[in-house]
Design a protein around this nucleic acid. Sequence first.
DNA 1: ATCTTTCTAGCACGACCGTGCGATATCGGG
DNA 2: CCCGATATCGCACGGTCGTGCTAGAAAGAT
Lengths: 235, 235
Amino acid sequence: MPKIVDHDARRAELAAALWRVVGRAGVAGATVRAVADEAGWSMGALRHYFASQGELLRFAMDTLLQDVPPRLAAHLAADLEPRERARRLLLELVPVDEERRIEAIVWLALLERSRTDPSLAEPREIAWLGERHICRLVVAELLDLPAPASPQDRFEDESSGERGAQAAGSSTERGARATGPAGIAPSPEEEAEALHTFVDGITLQATTWPGEWTPAAMRASAERQLDSVLQRAGR
Amino acid sequence: MPKIVDHDARRAELAAALWRVVGRAGVAGATVRAVADEAGWSMGALRHYFASQGELLRFAMDTLLQDVPPRLAAHLAADLEPRERARRLLLELVPVDEERRIEAIVWLALLERSRTDPSLAEPREIAWLGERHICRLVVAELLDLPAPASPQDRFEDESSGERGAQAAGSSTERGARATGPAGIAPSPEEEAEALHTFVDGITLQATTWPGEWTPAAMRASAERQLDSVLQRAGR
DNA sequence: ATCTTTCTAGCACGACCGTGCGATATCGGG
DNA sequence: CCCGATATCGCACGGTCGTGCTAGAAAGAT
């Protein structure tokens, strides 16, 4: 009986408009009116899909999150050498092209907003686990270690052990053996932590000072990170 | 004749209030009224020191910038072993205590705003040069290289050479000596770049997911970065 | 063709923003 | 003591925001 539209398609369209606006004017400029105009709709139409601005931002953040796993799956399914797989996984987290750069800008802006908007806290935490998980995958791939448990599994296993066990344990067990000058081979979790820091750092750098970072420079920098993981492991 | 107050002291007081507000409510919450209330003043009084909100934010950013050099100077003047000096310099850029964490939050928020507010572009660029310079100092200290030219000198020498000369030159001269598996010792500028990325990454991490980063974890992570620089140089 | 449900449009309201401005208070030199 | 420059106050204006709401358009089932 009624007029029927594809809500999901509309929401995706809205998200695209939102990103264009955020990329142009920042999150502060992402008002309901501006997004509606950008999409070519009225405010009333937009409110049929998002009852409030909070829902819109939450949706944008969830969408950014959901776009990552499929891209990863492609690299995990492909038949690749370890180094190449590690490279591709890591580069998924680096804003190497214009599309990803815009996404990264939006992402950073949403992270900033999540500091004061509790409704964005959940995707922020999920993102942290997801990013860290990918970094663990990269390390495991490079060092030929067993694949780490996925974030979902960890969450389900929450009752049987705390999340930081792996990191905490290894930071105490190191301290004696010196492999290099002052060098001690870091644990896999410490390597994942370092990659995680690298990824966030290059994201901030490339979005804030794009003139200093060409895609080629980012790739080269990532490559050196992979080299370092191998070198620190003594390989 | 007139009533006289110390403008600089007032401005500093204002900046402190601004940081408290930003730390609590984000930059979006840093309205003229909120800052005035936080400082215990009226809106009109505030406008005697900052004619507009833009001036207030610009001042806040400049203040954050100006606070860094004195702290650095102390470490540069002190009689320290290279490793210790490098450590202290690097840790100046890491939010290891609560005060620095708040400053980092404010800083990130201002960076975000600088994306759409041209008046904040200049301090942003100065900050990049300054951070990079400190990273170069750390590398030079660690690897016993001559101290790099300061950002100001570089700026003054602009006519006689481009800024990226050191990076471009050394990235071409590398390529032969392999120290590790796929390892090629990165150039000093590449090491500085890596440290720079690390610093920004840990800043973003520690401010966005403070639960995951204790000060001790940050120090340990920084230590491993220093180890890596030495190890990559083959020492 | 008509009815029912969904969708769209845009006005209206209250809240809050930055800022201009005039009244008032405060101090220091004459 | 008192004048005048400076500092402080807070109201008021115009603008923009998010959101509630109602009138009307659109479209499939009957």
